[in-house]
């Protein structure tokens, strides 16, 4: 889970527009991060799972190996953007959604668990790819806890926005 500075959330219509501006005409990849065993921390993985059926070549999660996926995308010769979707502690209301510029992500979140998003974003940039994080404010991240209804609604909203963009850019 990411930790970010205080900032307001994005409304759903703003979210769709913002994602569209970042993506331009590029192919849209989604990488869902987090741990589904820790309640709301699994939000990003659920978004990616939702999109996987319709876009199997463009939607990935922790279960697909995030680093390898990013390495592959970074080396492809195409115009593309990667949206990392992750539960992020933005000190907002649970379920709030915010698109975060990759430069706002703290580098210190690198761990043995997986490679830092900031490193993956830097690697993508070196390959001429754009990236951003779609943060979803969690309410609870206890081990084996249930996902909060408000976070579940945010998962649906993010999946809707990304689906719309992927349908226009990736088909």
């Amino acid at each position: 889970m990411h930790k970010l500075r205080d900032s307001p959330g994005d409304a759903e219509e703003d979210l769709t527009a913002r994602l569209g501006r970042i993506a331009g005409k590029g192919k849209v990849y989604v990488l869902g991060l987090g741990n589904v065993d820790r309640a709301d921390d699994g939000a990003g993985v659920l978004v990616a799972k939702d999109l996987k059926e319709s876009f199997p070549d463009y939607s990935f999660s922790e279960h697909d190996g995030v680093e390898g996926t990013v390495l592959d995308i970074s080396e492809r010769r195409e115009d593309s953007v990667v949206f990392f979707v992750d539960a992020s502690d933005m000190r907002l209301e649970p379920g709030a959604i915010k698109v975060i510029d990759r430069r706002e992500i703290k580098e210190t979140e690198i761990s043995t668990h997986r490679v830092a998003v900031a490193l993956m974003a830097s690697l993508l940039e070196r390959g001429g790819k754009r990236s951003a994080v779609i943060g979803i404010q969690p309410r609870k991240i206890e081990f084996r806890g249930e996902m909060s209804p408000r976070v579940m609604r945010a998962v649906d909203a993010v999946a809707r926005a990304l689906r719309s963009l992927m349908e226009s850019n990736n088909r």
Partner: peptide, 21 residues
């Protein structure tokens, strides 16, 4: 951090990701 290493050691960062993958 490894991010700061990217400019000078990009090949090693990619090695790490290839091996991890």
């Amino acid at each position: 951090s490894a991010i700061a290493m990217l400019n000078d050691y990009a090949d090693d960062v990619k090695r790490a990701l290839r091996l991890k993958k």
